[in-house]
């Protein structure tokens, strides 16, 4: 997308304004770094923590990767079944709807008993968080394939369910799968922090933030890690949009944009 230079940089103005406001309020109004550390102090903390921060980020991304990959691998086959067959949907939906409202954090005790202090324990919590958004958006995609497209496929030789899914339902559902994955990534990343914070892990961004920095009331470090959490999620989302949505869904332009 081409924007005039002026519009391209428009987002910078409010951002700088908010940061200045933060710096000023923390430094001259609140004057208590425990309540609110200054922005400059937080930036300095990020610099001071750079080594441990990179290691923690990588650990958290590992947890995230494990959870997301498992969620995707489990949700897609189930979504195909539930979206394509009314009977499978009827059989499985009640189970899904009982499990879905359980907050991922409520699974922490189970995760600890099952997986102890391994990466899989944190990965499991992320799996729980990412699984349901991916599943629900994806099966909606498979379920909503227009009848006329399926019948067109049949007339053109897609007789078996396998072919109909491969050539018609799957491409049709891809945008929904992508949306679900994007939402699942968001929820999953929130679960990373929470899982690590509450002791499913002895490393990672959330662990350090809560168990180390907050414990010592090093609030500038805490806020520094919070900022990093936000930035990593932003990067993940942008990368996903760049590589998946923009590249794959040229054909959707006319419909959604």
């Amino acid at each position: 997308m081409k924007l005039p230079t002026k519009e391209k940089w428009l987002w910078l103005v409010p951002l700088i304004a908010v940061l200045l406001l933060w710096e000023f309020t923390a430094g001259y109004v609140i004057k208590n770094p425990l309540m609110l550390p200054r922005f400059s102090a937080v930036i300095f903390s990020i610099y001071a923590l750079r080594n441990v921060l990179i290691a923690d980020t990588l650990i958290s991304l590992l947890h995230f990767g494990i959870g997301l990959a498992l969620a995707f691998a489990a949700a897609i086959p189930l979504a195909i079944g539930m979206g394509w067959s009314r009977n499978i949907f009827k059989a499985i939906d009640p189970i899904i709807e009982i499990l879905r409202p359980i907050p991922p954090l409520a699974w922490i005790p189970i995760a600890m008993i099952w997986f102890h202090l391994t990466h899989y324990a944190a990965g499991f919590i992320i799996f729980i968080g990412a699984f349901f958004p991916i599943l629900i958006d994806s099966y909606t995609g498979f379920r909503d394939v227009p009848k006329v497209l399926v019948e067109t496929g049949k007339v053109l030789g897609c007789i078996s369910d396998k072919k109909q899914i491969k050539y018609i339902a799957f491409p049709y559902a891809l945008p929904s799968i992508a949306t679900g994955t994007r939402v699942g990534m968001g929820v999953g990343w929130m679960c990373v922090v929470a899982a690590e914070m509450f002791g499913v892990s002895d490393s990672g961004l959330g662990y350090r933030l809560f168990q180390k920095f907050y414990f010592l009331h090093q609030m500038d470090y805490v806020v520094a890690y919070m900022l990093v959490l936000g930035l990593v999620a932003l990067c993940l989302d942008r990368l996903f949009r760049h590589f998946v949505e923009d590249k794959l869904f040229k054909w959707k332009k006319g419909i959604v944009k």
Partner: peptide
Amino acid sequence: RGMVFQEFSLFPWR
């Protein structure tokens, strides 16, 4: 047996 439907039936992703 080729069929042309009343509704638009092109595969939008193709």
